[in-house]
């Protein structure tokens, strides 16, 4: 497990990704505290200003400091994405693992439930859920979590299935091991990298959905700041502030890129687990050696 993480962090892209994610995590935790202005404070004298020394990213149509709103919006955006991933993990990974061990009835039922989840479109289902349960980001993100659960389910189940039929698991069973022992000692280690990769890529996907929903004004009650909400406000004032959507968009793109890069690095590390670290450059060199040389 730690080997996989260590191997992943040897890749330069993973180092940059982790760097970005640490900054984003810092912003999500301390963003509202380090914001130079109150993100909700309106100022009718400073509407739609460009970047100044006082307001680094300018002000919006209500005179609020965009930089402060961006920092404050980090918490909501990141937390919402994580919320849906946690829901997806619990509803997907756990039944995925158990479906291999709890018998055919449980397996059949969970497979059918996941099949039906796959057919639902993300945004439409999330919008329907907020319409049904009230406009709140939690409701929307629980809906998204339900819809990403099949990805966790399938990945975990596939990894667990491969391991559960291996001879070393059979060997442990021949020693009298319980299912819990087998999962703890043999299955979990093999399943974890697959879950880690899915978690990273699904967090990125969730962040895009959070941003899309908040862009549409779903799941969020104004004036609460979010990255998607900022983008929507800035797009509305494109003539006055043409550069406005650039920074919120870059923050969203950067975070999603970092999560996907981390997922890729984890995937590479899982494939190469146990092998000595080889850089992409070195790998290309090795592949270029002609046969028989």
């Amino acid at each position: 497990m730690i080997d996989v993480l260590r191997a992943a962090l040897r890749l330069p892209s993973a180092k940059i990704a982790v760097g970005i994610l640490i900054v984003i995590a810092f912003l999500a935790i301390f963003g509202p505290l380090v914001a130079p202005f109150d993100p909700y404070a309106q100022n009718s004298k400073d509407l739609l200003q460009g970047p100044t020394l006082e307001h680094w990213l300018g002000t919006d149509d209500l005179g609020r400091d965009v930089f402060s709103r961006l920092l404050a919006g980090s918490t909501v955006s990141v937390l919402a994405a994580m919320q849906s991933v946690v829901v997806g993990l619990v509803l997907g990974a756990l039944p995925g693992l158990l479906s291999v061990y709890l018998g055919r009835t449980f397996e059949w039922i969970t497979l059918r439930i996941m099949d039906s989840f796959i057919t639902l479109p993300f945004l439409v289902f999330a919008i329907a859920m907020t319409a049904l349960l009230g406009n709140g980001l939690t409701q929307a993100m629980v809906a998204v979590g339900i819809l990403i659960a099949p990805a966790f389910y399938r990945v975990t189940r596939a990894a667990a299935l491969t391991v559960s039929h291996s001879q070393y698991v059979e060997a442990a069973q021949l020693f009298g091991a319980t299912t819990a022992w087998v999962v703890r000692k043999h299955v979990w280690k093999k399943v974890f990298p697959a879950i880690a990769v899915t978690t990273a890529s699904m967090t990125g996907a969730s962040l895009v959905i959070v941003s899309s929903l908040t862009f549409l004004g779903i799941g969020i009650v104004p004036p609460e700041p979010t990255w998607g909400g900022l983008l929507a406000t800035d797009l509305g004032n494109l003539y006055q502030r043409p550069f406005g959507p650039v920074v919120p968009a870059l923050v969203i793109i950067g975070t999603v890129w970092a999560l996907n890069a981390l997922a890729d690095a984890l995937k590479d590390a899982t494939t190469d687990a146990g092998a000595p670290p080889v850089s992409k450059q070195k790998r290309r060199e090795l592949q270029a050696v002609p046969h028989g040389a």
Binding site: Q167, Y168, E170, A171, L174, K185, H186, K189, A273, G274
Partner: peptide
């Protein structure tokens, strides 16, 4: 009663 499998590469956990 103990069993020794044909292929140790399969019967020993590669991470253990």
């Amino acid at each position: 009663l103990q069993y020794v499998f044909q292929d140790p590469l399969q019967s020993l956990d590669p991470d253990v």
